[in-house]
Design a protein around this nucleic acid. Structure first.
Lengths: 336, 336
DNA sequence: TCTCCTCCTGAAACTGCTTTCATGTAACTA
DNA sequence: TAGTTACATGAAAGCAGTTTCAGGAGGAGA
């Protein structure tokens, strides 16, 4: 296991100073062509590659972006991450994932990132940060970009959840559904952004304007866990007064709803129309109508904003709005 | 934006040397209690936190594990990643994700990781590495742990794909299916490990032993892409001589198969039994029988092996075998 | 009282590259 | 020919800690 060559070894071999070798690597035009050639040969023969962390240290830059997320709970995170990853890797930035599973962990990560700098910037995916944490971030010089949850003073990619709820309502209403139901994940984890309530608001407001109130037994907010939510859904659907359509706040819940409907002998979309939110890949496989929120695109956007911010630290804060659109599929097909 | 304090500032304030401050942080028992108290106060008052990258540099250790994967193509990667992440974060290791989308990118990452050390170890998820790359890794001192694809000289988490294929075959055979079909992703991406062929082998061998040969029109190997695979599946199923069961090499393909069956008016499991491979979370939602390969567990295992390896670099190479098991659900329920 | 030992502590080396600053040289201009 | 300019280059500082090594102080035992 021979020790890896350093820039000093190259310099010695080529008979120049390390500074000149560094220049050959970073701004070759500054170095005399002959000497440059000699240095290049030395680099080749020693198979020298600059150690990335040494470069980072000297340059005070890491080429590394952190992503903090209440992770691994929903496929939607994965798709956002995919977008982020594609942009970062094309710019030779590394992606470090901080999966948050508790408020303490979140605080720990933020403290660590703020004080013991390891990343150039932080993308916060669907996190709900409390004021103390926000203050910490704001008084640090760590660039932050939020996705889904807007935060004063930081770049953000915003999803207009109310509008999405209204879109779902409109689609169902126009299909002839007038007895709506709602299934959503309750905000149990305080560190995660919760869009459920906003989506419900948009949804129920639309129907209210049409003179239709959501019946109390027609919405369910609970844990996004297979057994618990299945019970809740079955209870809502297994009643003579069941809704004729369901808007679920995520595609996973929507898919579970379809499954429950099947168990009860209800056919989708005839007995029950179902509409989800997210448009994860799986939605297409199971023929689910859903609100597309450009998951991958939002990741791309966030990463691009972050890289822009790093280039121009002083440019004004930017907010990007994601355009929602309805992906119509079988679960809301015209009733036969 | 005041400059962050360094260990030197603390040392000056406390009237000691930086070495002593470092000792207070890392092995407090070595320092005289009085002096220790004084230093602690200095640390408090300056709000000093050691910069992680400086520590890493001095210690020659990064507390950072890289994961290289043909990523974001299958939910199964996500679940493995979840397992890896949970172990690493509990040990305060960072997780850096390198998503590979082409052979060149793979080579680039490997070169970079080998020469310009940025991680303590590398977990290779379902990657197929060519011999040149393997050699590079072997002659470096970077610890590597492979998942799914075994590699001589490295720790590995191994999935016995043939056995899984045979398990699927056995389950279907015992349900009374004697006209099997197979749907699998073809090995188009040379940088990704391809287990499809092994699963097919185990599957068809089982039936062969029972005197049943897979008909040529009853297996399809193609791109795991919605349209292309849907066409292939429809073609296979829309024929009087269609199979009475399908083993799909991944759950996503299995779910698509169920969808196609529905389109053709076939009911699952009565007209067509379907069994998948992976047992991703979604499998439960859509009631798919599948071969569970402990995805999250395999991630946990890989991460643990890696941390062990870092502690004991010279221990012999270890191979862990994942126990497969059948997750029986609705798509192979007893025929009524 | 001398020697040995233990416990602390600071100096200095080490990690590996970038970048500024100062200097030297050669070419060009007045 | 002297002065100016442009270009090329090396020395050295800086990044921020850890760790080894040597030595001083003080206590215990002979």
């Amino acid at each position: 296991m021979a020790k890896q060559p350093t820039i000093y070894d190259v310099a010695k071999l080529a008979g120049v100073s390390p500074a000149t070798v560094s220049r050959v690597l970073n701004s070759p035009s500054m170095v005399n062509p002959e000497k440059r050639k000699r240095i290049m040969e030395a680099i080749e023969s020693l198979k020298f590659t600059p150690k990335a962390d040494a470069v980072a240290k000297a340059r005070q830059q890491f080429k590394r972006i952190g992503v903090i997320a209440p992770f691994f709970t929903e496929p939607s995170f994965m798709e956002r991450l995919k977008g982020i990853s594609s942009v970062l890797s094309s710019q030779h930035y590394e992606l470090v994932v901080y999966a948050v599973q508790s408020t303490e962990e979140l605080d720990g990560y933020v403290d660590m990132l703020v004080s013991s700098k390891r990343v150039d910037g932080l993308i916060s995916l669907c996190m709900h940060l409390d004021q103390t944490t926000v203050n910490k971030l704001q008084s640090s010089d760590l660039p932050v970009c939020c996705v889904e949850k807007d935060l004063t003073g930081f770049d953000a990619v915003i999803v207009h959840n109310q509008e999405g709820g209204a879109m779902a309502a409109k689609a169902l209403y126009e299909k002839g559904c007038h007895n709506p139901g709602f299934i959503g994940e309750a905000s149990t984890r305080s560190y995660a952004a919760h869009s459920t309530e906003e989506r419900l608001e948009g949804f129920s407001n639309f129907f209210k304007e049409k003179g239709i109130e959501l019946e109390p037994s027609h919405y369910w907010l609970g844990e996004n866990n297979n057994e618990i939510s299945t019970q809740g859904i079955l209870k809502m659907l297994d009643s003579p007064n069941r809704p004729d359509c369901i808007f679920a706040s995520s595609d996973t819940l929507a898919i579970r709803t379809i499954k429950c409907a099947g168990q009860l002998g209800l056919t989708v979309p005839d007995d029950l129309a179902v509409i989800g939110f997210d448009d994860i890949e799986m939605a297409e496989y199971v023929d689910l109508t859903t609100i597309n929120q450009g998951l991958e695109e939002s990741g791309v956007l966030a990463a691009e904003m972050m890289l822009q911010r790093l280039k121009h630290p002083d440019q004004p804060v930017r907010k990007s709005l994601i355009a929602l659109k309805l992906s119509e599929r079988g679960s809301t097909a015209v009733q036969t």
